[in-house]
Design a protein around this nucleic acid. Sequence first.
DNA 1: CTAGGACATTGAACTAGGACAAGAAAAACA
DNA 2: TGTTTTTCTTGTCCTAGTTCAATGTCCTAG
Lengths: 193, 193
Amino acid sequence: MYTQINSNITRYVSFSSSELEIFNSLLTYKEVPKKTMLLQEGEICNFEIFVIKGCVRKYYIDANGFEVILQFAIENAWVSDSSFSIYENKPSRVFIETLEDCEFFVFNPETKEELFAKAPRFERAFRILMQRSLAVTQERLFQTISRSATEKYQEFTAQYPTLSQRVAQHYIASYLGISAEFLSKIRTKMAKK
Amino acid sequence: MYTQINSNITRYVSFSSSELEIFNSLLTYKEVPKKTMLLQEGEICNFEIFVIKGCVRKYYIDANGFEVILQFAIENAWVSDSSFSIYENKPSRVFIETLEDCEFFVFNPETKEELFAKAPRFERAFRILMQRSLAVTQERLFQTISRSATEKYQEFTAQYPTLSQRVAQHYIASYLGISAEFLSKIRTKMAKK
DNA sequence: CTAGGACATTGAACTAGGACAAGAAAAACA
DNA sequence: TGTTTTTCTTGTCCTAGTTCAATGTCCTAG
């Protein structure tokens, strides 16, 4: 049960088995059915989720009421607001919702503090985790600015081959920043070749 | 000399004066003229810079040879590769260049490790710093996807009023992900109203 | 003080992608 | 099983933004 999350957290920092025991003892396991809202805009996000199984999306709603998907999180990925809502006590601007039946491990700020107090080296692991998401987000920003819709879609399917099967197309369109109709046109064009 | 960086680092975590002394003793001061390349694509980024004075840009070069500016860093901001090049030992994909004569404090991985060893609570401060950049980058991704060029430009000038004076327009265009010509057209249209 | 380069502006022609509408297909559900 | 809701496709028209080229402006080095 803990193997997935343990191999994730030890990817860049190694921990002793007693440290991992502390870590595991502080995790809360949760099962959540699909189409469940985990976080609504305006709430304060007080959790960090590790996805054991299933799929989650995190999204904003823009000025015209359109959803913009920022992140899909599938097996072995972390999701949370990751803006500064916890530290500055500001309400979140994002929504987080399950797309499939999910299994999670959940962290909240208190258990995280407890973890850092009992095993300070986790502070480092979480900093590196953060750094990874920053790198990913930055790469995505670059792709979004510099590539055409077709290129972005190809890139997406290459990078997340399973996801493009599991998730409705209009979600993918929203992630890529294009309309669902145009994505459909891209797909038919690609299929013809 | 140290007031800027000290007030930056104590913004979310408070430190004793002895901790700050350790911190300051590990900083390297540097002056660099404008148009200096600090990092080239393909190199491994082994520094983190705090800008005391001046302006720096960080950018990718896309598949067609066009520059895409990811970040401007001015007074009191941090810049580094922030992708994972240090940890995975991969060459960087970004360029970092000064746009004005600059004054910096520089950190490299070794001094940072030394800092964490001598004053472990800095690990936390750097994690929060990381988290802030992630939040900023994510907000920017959202804006990039969901807003028109005009809106993005207005947002930019509102958020960075000094920067839009200090920096050449085609850099701003590159940051916003639009062509320099179109930015010029937006500006003349806005001036007429 | 001047020549060369970088930067900005403007216009004309073009295109990637959006908005809307309507139908087809596929899931979900009872 | 049929029915309802959600998702996907396709076509037509439209616009935001690009590309290319020409001209103008302003630094800055010599």
